[in-house]
Design a protein around this nucleic acid. Structure first.
Lengths: 146, 146
DNA sequence: CAAATATAATTGATATATCAATTATATAAA
DNA sequence: TTTATATAATTGATATATCAATTATATTTG
């Protein structure tokens, strides 16, 4: 069987792209905010917009599993960016709240992220973005529906 | 600043696609081979095609850093899929060789991987793949050259 | 209602990711 | 040739990824 090497496939290109973006974005965040990962930043952004998300829902939004999310939330609580409190309506799930310190950090994030997205998408047309989304969507569907 | 949520961006789509593909591919591998990760499989494929790769070069091909690669090679050595030996021409780098056991596993990999790629790219035209590659390439370049 | 099932979160074990520091060897420059 | 610099790999520390098992609480069903 003449199997192309992994490095010759589209998956390699996809992986390489998202990894470079993450490196790039992380570097720009680290230059302005100490001890903040991209994913922790994303969690703050999601919580800010949707304060009633529980851990499971946040996990899904940032592509983590529940176990990873538990530990990630732990470190964010340690850093006092968020706090956990029991949700009396359903004692299985926590209520996650952004602290004042978390809110301060949150203030500084949007311009950095905006800048990251802008630079990394420079020169790419709306139409190309649409194409990208459609094609990737097909691949994703193939993987989940098969 | 009205920043779109991360889940509304193209990066979310890219990340989601590659993660679903990895899940899908890992599931199909695990069904046939015990205790084998995608990345370990990729390392075997690369080594098979290019036997003179050192750890640093392999790392680059599978998007790991050197530290991760050291540990990954450790576990692959433990599992007796590969072995390390000193390279007399340059005693800083190891010679990595696939063992007979590694070769046996390697035999079973290509059909599985072929199947994974085929299914996940089903219904996607050559032209779409080209588009995908070009657009992602632009993003990647923006991230590395900025 | 009581038993069975489902859900959210945690924990343990092991692997991998990441950064900084270190070791050993090779190569370049004074 | 000695010194300085560069390279390949390792190690330590901490965070995250993943799977399986467990706990606590809710919900469904008989």
């Amino acid at each position: 069987m003449n199997l192309p090497l992994p490095s010759e496939t589209i998956f390699h290109v996809i992986e390489s792209t998202i990894k470079e973006y993450r490196k790039f974005a992380q570097k720009n965040i680290s230059e302005q905010i100490q001890d903040m990962t991209i994913d922790q930043g994303l969690v703050l952004l999601f919580l800010n917009k949707h304060p009633n998300l529980n851990q499971k829902e946040i996990a899904e939004l940032v592509f983590k599993d529940n176990a990873s999310m538990t530990r990630m939330i732990n470190t964010m609580v340690q850093k006092k960016h968020i706090k956990r409190s029991i949700n009396p309506k359903d004692r299985r799930r926590y209520k996650i709240e952004i602290t004042n310190k978390g809110k301060e950090v949150l203030e500084t994030l949007p311009p950095i992220i905006h800048h990251n997205r802008n630079l990394s998408l420079k020169g790419i047309t709306k139409n190309e973005l649409n194409q990208l989304e459609i094609i990737l969507g097909k691949i994703r569907t193939n993987c989940t529906k098969t």
